[in-house]
Design a protein around this nucleic acid. Structure first.
Lengths: 338, 338
DNA sequence: CTGAAAGCGCTTACAG
DNA sequence: CTGAAAGCGCTTACAG
């Protein structure tokens, strides 16, 4: 690979000058500019980004840490991130957080070691103390997604999962459902706790006792929802609605119900969360709660880019709220009308 | 951020020694090793990856270029890539190819400039001549996915899209369908050409003329399939089956049929490609062609890692074949039995 | 087992 | 407008 020295020799100028035309810095005579461009051309010269980064102390890269690689949710997250990074002339370095606090921290360290301008951390496992420790250890700016970071240690954007969950549960309650099965998630995360907390709170408000036999954990996949629903059915206890923690599991549950001849929504209403694109096209179409994942990604990237560019960002964190999407899979509880 | 110099001072050794303990190279007295580790510990030292890369001429990074960020297909591709890269101790740098040959080339250049050890190129747009030009310009090893690269310029892995498409079409033909609508894709790519070519060839073999009114382009999304199917319906021409170029569009088509009261599969059979996870859980479950995307990603990454590590790789390229998955959405053509 | 020195390919004051 | 020189933070022969 040709280096800046090769170019400077061929063009008959110093490498300082070559550097200046590459970066379009300072005043340079048009004629020497042309000389340099021609030399770069004939040599097929490409500046070594690593050397540039080392010398200038900006790597023009954005680190993204996530543990989610499945489904539409992640697709949108990555697509938007890639688009915005690209527009800003930054490379996106993607790293897996492995659903593990220790691995999330390692991921941060490796991105810091690579001198990313800024890190986007989609965190599931870190505690407030972890954030504090990280802050003490590194000066790399970090934007946290999906988690609220207290005390203004890092800027953060997140969903109000309690609210989103309440939307789903209250929708079922308003339709007259009382015996509500719940497909939760086996992973322990703040998101899961908040969603289940909302389930408890909403039922408690209506003075409905939760039937633990009807609460089964899934793994966020369609197959997991299918299995979970089979377990619920096996309990042989009456229920008129299922609330699944995401659309994938809801779809799996509907299939399980279908297979034993239970009609959705006539006999059992089903609602999920995420508003996956397939939701409005399956039959019955799926009621859900839409989370503005595109918006939250954009917000996070905007902050990240500002931080990378040294633009002052307000210390105000942002909470995003979901929206109830009513479709065919939920309907009034006929049993209660009897 | 502390540097190797800070560590060497604190530990009272030369930075050469510090470098050796970081990289675990050569023999070092246990006691000085301890000294260095302690110094690194107290300083919270993290070696600067960029400087390491520059000095050692290996960046421990893998560049991934793709234009697909949607759906399960990409999720699996990225999940597997991230996993394998991580296991190999490499960072994954993801770049968007923008469905544009010029942008794909720019993406390669930027990854080369970043001195990636190897580049995984999921290409849609480059020609054989492009591959040749790139090869002449850069020595960075490249593994091409989704495209066959001729003359052994680069190692490549790809799907036999003609075969996959034939599986779907022949399945419909064997079920007795003759009036087959086709939802193709509006983007022009080799994949699309091959799939449509197979559609033509299979029908021609049975001496069935293609009804162009029943061939409509979609955009690979569920909504696109829905729209495309509506256009087909609007033609008011008889058809007993729909072949969609992917499952998303097939699902959209089924919904469109459902809305006007056409029963799948009793009146119209529908088949897609991709075998998306939801396929076996929607009702009716969706017949499809499974493409071994996980396997192809693994194969590509394995080659890439070998190239990155200087392990000799055989020049044999690999073609992967899909598999027909029969489910509820396709059935025998009742019309033809009359 | 360890250190001094050169080098990786750039950028950036400092001079002129 | 341009160049010589120092420096970014590492690695790696070469000596000892």
């Amino acid at each position: 690979m040709p280096t800046i020295n090769d170019v400077s020799k061929l063009a008959g100028v110093s490498k300082a000058t070559v550097s200046r035309v590459i970066n379009n810095k300072g005043k340079i005579k048009e004629s020497t500019k042309t000389l340099v461009f021609e030399a770069m051309q004939t040599l097929n010269y490409q500046p070594n980004t690593l050397a540039q980064a080392l010398a200038s102390n900006t790597s023009h890269s954005i680190g993204l840490i996530t543990s989610i690689f499945d489904g539409n949710y992640f697709g949108v997250l990555l697509k938007e991130s890639a688009k915005l990074a690209d527009q800003a002339g930054k490379q996106l370095i993607v790293t897996d957080g492995h659903h593990d606090p220790q691995r999330e921290i390692e991921a941060i360290d490796s991105l810091v070691a690579r001198r990313c301008d800024v890190i986007l951390l989609y965190s599931r496992k870190l505690t407030q103390q972890d954030f504090k420790d990280i802050k003490a250890r590194t000066s790399t700016p970090i934007v946290v997604m999906n988690r609220e970071v207290k005390n203004n240690i890092y800027r953060s954007v997140w969903f109000d999962h309690f609210h989103a969950s309440s939307l789903a549960v209250n929708h079922l309650l308003e339709l007259g459902h009382r015996a509500i099965a719940c497909i939760t998630a086996s992973v322990s995360s703040r998101t899961v706790k908040l969603r289940y907390g909302a389930f408890q709170a909403c039922l408690a408000k209506q003075q409905i006792a939760i039937n633990q036999d009807l609460v089964v954990a899934g793994d966020y996949t369609i197959a997991g929802g299918y299995q979970a629903c089979k377990k619920i059915i096996a309990q042989k206890q009456p229920f008129t609605a299922i609330y699944a923690f995401n659309d994938d599991m809801a779809i799996g549950a509907i299939r399980a119900l279908h297979e034993i001849g239970i009609k959705v929504p006539e006999q059992v209403s089903v609602i999920g969360i995420d508003n996956e694109p397939f939701g409005s096209f399956v039959t019955p179409s799926l009621s859900s709660v839409e989370l503005p994942i595109k918006e939250i990604t954009n917000a996070a990237m905007k902050i990240a880019l500002d931080l990378a560019n040294g633009v002052p960002v307000s210390p105000i964190d942002t909470e995003f709220r979901g929206k109830l999407i009513k479709r065919e899979s939920t309907t009034i509880n006929h049993a209660s009308l009897l």
